[in-house]
Design a protein around this nucleic acid. Structure first.
Lengths: 165, 165
DNA sequence: GCTAGTAGGTAGCCAGGCTAGTATCCAGGC
DNA sequence: GCCTGGATACTAGCCTGGCTACCTACTAGC
């Protein structure tokens, strides 16, 4: 009863295989996030926020509550609570912006950096290894496929044009 | 501030591209689910459940509350409430199993079938078209890559072995 | 130096999870 | 035939983590 659905518009078995692989990947990713978050005693959103802050810092930038809200798709009010939780747990710190005192700069603590690296570093390496295992001549096709999928999902509003006709 | 992070373990640009494409795809998928669910005035979990029930039916099977709970990774108690919501909204019906009267059979209403087809049919077709656009000789590599990723994510516990050493 | 706009926080509400406990039912041992 | 154990779903009540609405502090433009 947990077997995959085969109701794709798949004429060709190789196409059906790809679509099924996509479906499986989405589930695996979701489950992994749940497990990792649970392992760090936090919810999935908080985990995402933490990753985001660290990613911004890795690029030499500063994360602000408003950015985090936008990135996560939640309100700034909810983000305030989120930051309260992550501050209380010692993963993030809030400091006021040096010049604009309306603004707040969110920074990950060394502890958060360490913990995330310990838990995700190995996984990222493994993912890179899997990417390297793709034959060089097919790599462009793989990225192009994923990019095309992303473009499509981004453009999808979820309503068939028929409905409003 | 919403630019991608480039802290992958990427020696090779083509590898980095793949990993970045994966990251982007995950976000696009998540956002799409939120939009579609919101468009149908339901939460993401309920939407998933509905898709699951319909998928099971497409394969000629019957969905049971317990299966749904397992598929979604939530308790059977929460599933009861979920089924209450989806019954109230006219998307699902509950009937007792003909022979085993402990069991409940969940079925999607024609309305749910129609609505989902309207909203997702076009998207699935477009996804199939994107898969067909992958050069035939690279299709195996694409599915293999995604499968390997899924395998890895499924196996990942999120704790580095160093931690316990 | 007002006033409009912006960033973030506070208060209070509600949806949607959870655990614990309950009712019903099937299957197996006697 | 009739208990008993395990399966299946539901109910009651709690808690987390969202939301809206409103408020404060601050900057910038005139």
């Amino acid at each position: 009863m947990t077997e995959p659905a085969h109701f794709w518009y798949a004429d060709d078995p190789s196409v059906a295989e790809i679509l099924e692989a996509v479906r499986r990947f989405r589930r695996a990713d979701e489950d992994m996030r749940r497990r990792i978050s649970a392992g760090m005693r936090m919810n999935v959103t908080d985990m995402s926020a933490l990753q985001y802050v660290i990613a911004v810092e890795q690029r030499g930038g500063h994360a602000h509550p408003g950015d985090i809200a936008g990135h996560l798709g939640i309100s700034t009010a909810s983000t305030t609570k989120l930051l309260d939780r992550l501050s209380a747990s010692g993963h993030l710190t809030r400091t006021t912006h040096p010049t604009d005192r309306r603004s707040v700069v969110v920074a990950a603590t060394p502890h958060a950096h360490t913990e995330l690296r310990e838990r995700l570093g190995r996984m990222h390496e493994a993912m890179a290894a899997i990417a390297r295992a793709v034959p060089p001549q097919a790599r462009g096709d793989v990225s192009a496929f994923l990019d095309a999928m992303s473009d499509h999902l981004d453009s999808e509003r979820g309503v068939a044009p028929l409905t409003s006709a």
